[in-house]
């Protein structure tokens, strides 16, 4: 097909002269990992909280939690990203908005992306956590309350330890998704892995090398995540326990 392969391209100095093209890729790789992990932290903490609130008896709290879930899972990720990056700074109090706009562009892009991905994924994590809690036999909650636990203690000592074990597999999918979804952030100029791949094509006209490398880098990340989560699953397995209900 007349394509001239040149894997050596990665060792060439980049167009800007201060790095090699491999250096560009590594920068993108680190950006993807840093962004996804920090967004995952937000998603996990907030998602767990919102998921728990969806199951509490208080109508106000569960209503608020439901609003959070519906808001963040029903707006397309790309639209959410544009809202965080282009619209929100205008809506902030003037001082804060100005401070944001005067910060380094990479900082602006990173913060917008992190918050956006984190909140988007938190809605999905919340749904997993809620379904985990709801799939426990209702007698568990009664047994915990009957022995004198308060409602928070019931969640802390009885419901959540089991619910989290049950949702490790679906959470693995969400964890994998957050890395893949992070590629959307290239649209606001964040130089993560996918953006670096495209940039490399623009400068070197070697699309195969570039996107094969990008693909392999994503595969590498996801294989590590999968094995990590499998390890977690095995770690928390309960001797003799089969399935959820009675």
């Amino acid at each position: 097909m007349g394509y001239s392969w040149n894997w050596g391209v990665f060792l060439q100095p980049s167009a800007t002269g201060d790095d090699t093209y491999l250096g560009w890729m590594l920068y993108g790789f680190k950006m993807t990992i840093g962004l996804s992990l920090s967004a995952w932290l937000i998603a996990l903490l907030l998602g767990a909280l919102v998921g728990v609130l969806r199951t509490v008896p208080s109508k106000t709290l569960s209503g608020l939690a439901m609003a959070h879930v519906e808001l963040f899972r029903n707006i397309p990720l790309l639209v959410q990203l544009f809202l965080w990056y282009f619209v929100l700074p205008e809506l902030l109090p003037k001082d804060l908005g100005d401070a944001f706009k005067q910060s380094h562009p990479v900082v602006q892009q990173f913060i917008s992306s992190m918050v956006c991905l984190g909140l988007f994924t938190s809605a999905r994590v919340a749904e997993q956590v809620r379904s985990g809690i709801n799939s426990l036999p209702p007698g568990q909650k009664n047994a915990a309350l009957a022995i004198g636990f308060t409602l928070p203690q019931t969640y802390r000592f009885v419901l959540l330890p089991m619910a989290f074990r049950l949702v490790v597999p679906p959470l693995t999918s969400e964890f994998l998704n957050i890395f893949k979804n992070s590629a959307v952030c290239s649209t606001i100029g964040l130089l993560e892995l996918a953006a670096q791949g495209r940039q490399l094509v623009d400068y070197t006209a070697q699309p195969y090398e570039s996107f094969i490398t990008v693909t392999l880098a994503y595969v590498l990340i996801n294989v590590v995540v999968m094995f990590g989560m499998r390890w977690v699953e095995a770690r928390v397995r309960i001797p003799g326990y089969i399935g959820g209900g009675h």
Binding site: P137, G139, N142, A143, A146, P161, M162, Y241
Partner: peptide, 14 residues
């Protein structure tokens, strides 16, 4: 201080 025993035992499995 009121003990209760359930049909499905409801021990804490973890």
């Amino acid at each position: 201080h009121v003990g209760m025993v359930f049909q499905n035992f409801e021990l804490f499995p973890h």
